[in-house]
């Protein structure tokens, strides 16, 4: 699992795979909640929609930057894999990009355009968010299927697409539980309760399918003594799901206390599922075809980037936290002041 730290050609690819994995995880949680809010958008009324926008307004730019970092790291650290994966996923990537473009600009346009155009931009905001989530889930599904493209794998990918959209809606709903009050918060609790079951089915489907696709992955999970180390992963996930379910049924608590808990617990749940997936595929970056060591760029170039990253990433984390602290508390309608 761990590389030889005395040999740069060995640990540098590992370090970059970790960094890239971390960026994808942070992206999935952070842009996950704002995409989710976009998917839930049509379920709210007009006043509530403005508060939903307000709850993600100051953050979404920075959240999407994690995607740029993740794909950037894939590009710079594993150039071979970047080309292989993305040219295989040509159309879903295209769909995702169109989705991201539509929702990003709709976000700004709906606030500035004349009133009669606002409904159109609202619809595009929803459509863009949903398209992005479906496309990302579709890509995840194909990736799990080893980028093999047959009718069956497309079916599975379509399924993961729906699961991821539901998953984003779920984490989006828990974000709204944290950021809103009153009827909107009550609605968000309802959405979260409903979508939790989608999340459970999604995690179950992926967990059961992944080992079936590849004997290598099956062996990785179900051999002794590894299974002892891995057991906490599903057990902890099950416990978290139970805890989230109980919380969601009883919330809001008196005085709206602990309203951040479902979001935090969901983030941990997403992280656990993600770690499971990462464990399955390590050390491959293109499933069953190319390992991180085969795909890595020259150690000298990686070193240059890593030195910069060591200084810059903590600073990025610092000012990202600062932005969340400044805009903490319940969301209001956004104002440019």
């Amino acid at each position: 699992m761990f590389p030889d730290f005395s040999n740069p050609a060995d640990w540098l690819p590992w370090a970059f795979a970790s960094l890239m994995g971390l960026s994808i995880l942070v992206y999935v949680v952070l842009d996950g909640f704002d995409l989710g809010v976009g998917i839930l958008f049509p379920l709210a009324d007009r006043g509530e929609q403005d508060r939903m926008i307000g709850s993600i307004g100051p953050f979404w730019d920075a959240n999407e930057t994690w995607l740029v970092l993740a794909v950037g790291l894939l590009l710079v650290a594993f150039p071979m894999a970047h080309g292989m994966i993305l040219s295989q996923l040509y159309l879903p990537v295209f769909a995702m990009l169109i989705g991201l473009i539509l929702r990003g600009v709709a976000f700004e346009f709906r606030a500035k355009a004349r009133d009669r155009h606002k409904a159109l931009w609202n619809r595009l905001f929803f459509v863009g968010s949903l398209t992005t989530a479906l496309a990302q889930g579709f890509m995840l599904g194909l990736y799990i299927m080893g980028l093999v493209r047959t009718q069956d794998t497309y079916f599975f990918a379509a399924l993961t697409g729906i699961f991821l959209a539901v998953g984003y809606s779920f984490i989006g709903a828990t974000w709204l539980v944290h950021k809103t009050t009153g009827p909107l918060q009550a609605k968000a609790l309802g959405w979260a309760r409903l979508s939790l079951w989608g999340v459970v089915s999604g995690i179950a489907a992926v967990s059961l399918t992944t080992p079936l696709v590849s004997d290598r992955i099956l062996a990785k999970w179900f051999s002794f003594p590894e299974i002892l180390w891995l057991a906490p992963l599903p057990l902890l996930s099950a416990a978290l799901i139970a805890a989230i379910w109980i919380m969601l049924r009883r919330m809001p608590f008196a005085g709206d206390r602990h309203n951040w808990l479902p979001f935090a617990a969901s983030s941990v749940l997403f992280a656990l599922a993600y770690v499971g997936l990462a464990y399955s595929f390590y050390p491959f970056v293109v499933p069953e075809q190319l390992t991180i060591y085969e795909a890595a760029a020259a150690p000298e170039s990686l070193m240059i980037i890593l030195v910069g990253a060591c200084f810059v990433v903590p600073v990025i984390l610092g000012y990202s936290v600062l932005a969340y602290v400044i805009f903490r508390g319940k969301a209001t309608e956004l104002r440019y002041e």
Binding site: G57, V76, I305, A309, I316, S320, Y336
Partner: peptide
Amino acid sequence: GPLLAYEVLTAFFLEAAFVGIMLFG
């Protein structure tokens, strides 16, 4: 690669994080 990485790391994040404060802060 390193040039693009430095662009994202040093510049892109800086803009994206502070633009929220600039617009709504």
